Computed example of a mutant assay.
Amino acid sequence: MNPQNNRTRVIVLLVAVLVLGAVGTGAVLYAADRTARRDQPQSGGPAVTPGNVSLQAPSAGRQLLFRNMAWGPHRDEITTVPADHPDGPRTASGTQCLRFHAAAGTGICLQAEHGALEDTYRAVVLDDHLHQRRSFPAAGIPTRARVSPSGHLAAWTVFVSGDSYAGTNFSTRTSIVDVRDWNLRENLEDFAVIKDGRPYQAHDVNIWGVTFADDNTFYATLATSGQTHLVRGDLAARTLTTLHDNVECPSLSPDGTRIAYKKRVPGLSPDAPWRLYVLDLATGAETATAEQRNIDDQALWSDDGTLLYALPGDYGADLWTVPADGSGAARLVTKAAVAPAYLG
């Protein structure tokens, strides 16, 4: 055997070992740096401290709750701020949610459970101290959540397949539970559909984005044959009745007269097709808000004249507001926040 060849092989082996060692060390240092940055507040981010968070209406001052998106030890926790000072210091609850909503002392929290091979998800009903009352397996990735004004009903929507509303290759599952007796309507697709005044059946029906009027009546989006429709749901009758076309992720105003929603506007990019509109339920009149960016959220009414919603931001999402009557301009409310709820 040629000694020169042996020496060459040894040198090549040593170089390979050194390169692999350097790559491994670099990967470890990179992962450690990412972890350190994840667990520290991002420069310029909101101040977040742990404390007591309640879902009861406060005795003094309205509160705004949301999922905190700022990097640090309290990322993804439900936090609270005074509603009139939404960009102030946040109080973190210790409860992590991907999607969240609350009303009248009841919360709904959609959570991920991280497994060795894959993540699973669950819907957790919370009491007024954010303690678990009951949980239900969720069939996919959390996307929408709502509690009725009385706190008696909780609804959630997950993606069973797909992870975006923008295309057509997705399937959802929407459930409603009555927290008084734990009567679970596991899949609203089992309800009878009345479309254009006639019974309707199809294999491609999808339903998402519940918003409650009371403890029996709700509104949601129904999709079929490539079209979306606003439906009025009746829990007792187990029916869904179409009311208006091209409505997604509806949100009922506090006075029960209007629906805020995402509307697909012709001519926009298929990847960013939605604008924020308001529908008058009595007249069917549509009003475009002053928000000109793509909206992929279920807006929340701050009051009878103002909408709150999430848009992409440096931390993942920020909360913005705009008047519901088409006037004014969109305005940033607070950074690093998503899935809001008002108490009080």
Rank of each mutant, 00 (worst) to 15 (best):
G326F: 08
H203L: 12
A31R: 04
S148K: 15
S225H: 07
A166F: 11
A310E: 13
V10C: 06
R9N: 01
L308R: 08
H131R: 03
S253N: 12
P254L: 05
L13S: 03
Q42I: 09
D318K: 14
N52V: 10
D163S: 07
H85A: 12
Y121N: 08
R144C: 04
K263M: 04
V23D: 01
L230T: 11
A103I: 09
A285W: 02
S150I: 07
P137L: 09
R293Q: 13
Q42D: 12
V48I: 14
V124N: 03
V333K: 13
H85Q: 08
C97S: 08
R232E: 12
G61T: 08
T289F: 07
W182R: 12
G88R: 12
T289D: 06
S43K: 10
S54D: 08
P250L: 01
R144E: 05
V147M: 09
D271T: 12
P58I: 07
Q111D: 01
Q40P: 06
D297H: 00
I108T: 07
G88N: 04
P312F: 08
T8W: 05
R99F: 01
A16F: 13
A223G: 09
Y121H: 11
A47S: 11
S164D: 15
D181G: 02
H129D: 03
P312E: 15
A112K: 09
S43I: 03
P46W: 03
D255M: 08
L343T: 00
A31D: 06
A70M: 15
G226N: 15
A145D: 06
R37W: 14
L252T: 04
P270D: 02
P142R: 04
